[in-house]
Design a protein around this nucleic acid. Structure first.
Lengths: 224, 224, 224, 224
DNA sequence: AATGAATGAGCCTTCATTCAT
DNA sequence: AATGAATGAAGGCTCATTCAT
């Protein structure tokens, strides 16, 4: 009664014991379906029928565990959140490089769609909106702010720079690339953001921003 | 009472003269309803019934002018976009300040929702996606790139700066504030972006870069 | 203000004087459109919009002349009827051969569809049903009955033969081929009916049915 | 009165226990409604709403079992068809007499309408057309052709007779009476067809044709 | 606890018909 | 007399949710 969840399609016509939704693995299975669907079609076109079908459960069963579509979505989203581990490098740019890399590392194709679904669902369901803020924005922001604090301590931040925007900057750029430009975020993008924006931005300050590999301009690609 | 087969409905509830949709003012009226609705509920939950109701038209009438929901939306969006007139100030930061200010000037509460609806609709309808790129993103980007070209001509852009990201930067920050942080964009935000990010970013000055007149890349075209 | 109707599409963008529906040629033009449409899509899917579009008239104009879709259809059908000229040959089979040939001669692709439309429309509109009986069934039946009377006079009809069915026979076969088998009626079919059914049927009788070209069996094709 | 936002509708009007569509009897019930409706109004005016109403089911329920109107119609028609058991009498006329009697035996008033609906639906939906051919026309035709083969074996068919038309003949006459003449088919009609047409047609006897055992053409197969 | 089945309330789109010019 | 435009009433199909087993 727990066994490897085994979500394959290997002709499970009849001979599969029904796994209750109370089983954590089964739950995860459902969440996977939910997240995949959200990413694929967005919040509004996400239907309980689709979930039931793909998760090989009946809608009634789903409704027994989650009282509404909104709650199922929120619950799935909640579980999904992986808090980025706080990095600690020697300089703000490098801290950010790691932070962003860690953030993007967990991204699959679907997270791009999830991002959109999250924004879309926020309008319909305040709970989704809260989740968006708490789970997506805040942790990253906090990690970035911690890095900022360290940088400030080291005197890396020029006085003229708006610190709040500085923190938002990298995420804003990634978001724009993902949402508006339909791009899949890449490690190169991280480097371009750090070397092409953050480093120059911090240069004027006391700490006179040191930057590891400075690739002049454009879509630089430090080959090592 | 309760018999009566059909035929009641005391025509034209509020003494409103029938104004044809061909009338430009009436069209604008409908577009206003469409945009407001889009902003309120998003693309999927936007219904023709709602439009008809609010615009005091019949669905059939709407369908006479626009062959589908998608086309009505696209048409309304199209009409709505006012391309910001190309600013021309003495410095890149000031150019951008004007550009952003012009962009945000037309923003009402609803434009946040519109932005989201556009993103949402893009996934469902390729036509909406195309529109978003061509009519909404491109003009802004071009204006910003023109400003960049002039700045480059003046030697304002340090060589290390990633020019593409530089162009995206201000918009990305606005977008983030609007979409993710639920903020209404304000003139102060513009100033913070310009003074707290752009200016410091460009501080290195010409010396840090290369010769003043390098048209590097993009569709930049030095003023001749 | 009458001129050759000229129903071509030769770029009649603007420069075409509006021809009133009172003009007989214009009426015929409309009827042509109606009949073509009926044949193409049947009675139910026939729409006033389609008529208006193809006839380059406005629906309101059509409604001015014909108070309803049903009446337009009926009127068009009425005009369309060409009464088959009564033939007069030396024998019943030859009479029928001519009669059927004359009937089918006027058939175009569209008449097959019209036949169906007529049956379909009969259910909805009693007037169409009446038309069907009066205009389609009766004239043919009368011509055939006249031929039968002559044949009877000549002693061509064996006593055992059911005369009513004998009259219906050829039409029934044509109808079946057209409606049920989706075939376009051909001159060969007429010969097969006359030589392969009528002639043998009359053989036993006093007149001992003479038949011009007797092609043994199957889909005979008298080459001359 | 007139206030109340929603939620009235005193459930299940007539104390009808909810019987699932999976129940065969319930299915038959729905099919009865479908067939009756088709017969009454034809294919185009047949609506899912009407079916739902009369069958006391909800449209959504119907759509759960049948993915489209076309499929519901086809399914109902399919179930309805009872292939006439192959008769086997001593002579072709008697064989046909039985075949026709069996065919018409199941006919109710509504089958006339059904026939029309089938013809009508065939134009709109190829699936209906296929069904009509395969399920309705073919079985009859095959039974008739089998009878013909036996008759041929017995030397009943005069050589001059067009065998294909001979097979179609009785059905064509019935169809004409039913569809064009608005008659309800009666046992008398069968006798008139057999005695007044078939018998005289075959009177010439074997001598008029050729040797008794000529399997000429078609899918005829002399009884071993 | 899981599920097959049912359903009210829409949603997009179309059609015959009527107005106002 | 002709037409551009408007519209109530459907019609096919879908979705979140609830029953009954």
């Amino acid at each position: 009664m727990s066994g490897g969840v085994a979500g394959h399609r290997t002709g499970r016509a009849r001979g599969l014991r029904k796994v209750p939704l109370s089983d954590p693995a089964r739950r995860r299975e459902v969440f996977d379906v939910v997240l995949a669907l959200l990413a694929e079609v967005g919040y509004e076109r996400f239907t309980m029928d689709l979930v039931a079908q793909r998760a090989r459960a009946s809608k009634a069963t789903l409704y027994q565990r989650w009282p509404s579509k909104a709650e199922l979505v929120v619950d799935a989203l909640q579980e999904h959140q992986q808090v980025a581990a706080g990095p600690e490098a020697g300089s703000y740019p490098d801290d950010l490089r790691r932070l962003l890399a860690a953030w993007l590392a967990g991204w699959t194709e679907r997270d791009r769609g999830l991002m959109l679904a999250l924004l879309e669902g926020s309008r319909r369901d305040p709970e989704v909106a809260r989740l968006r803020r708490e789970r997506l924005s805040r942790p990253l922001r906090q990690a970035a702010e911690a890095a900022l604090a360290r940088a400030r301590g080291r005197g890396e931040i020029p006085g003229q720079v708006d610190e709040e925007l500085l923190v938002e900057l990298p995420f804003a750029l990634v978001l724009t690339h993902v949402l508006v430009l339909d791009e899949q975020p890449s490690p190169e993008l991280v480097d371009r953001i750090v070397d092409g924006v953050l480093v120059p931005l911090l240069r004027g300050g006391p700490g006179a921003g040191r930057s590891p590999a400075v690739p002049a301009e454009g879509s630089a690609r430090p080959s090592a």
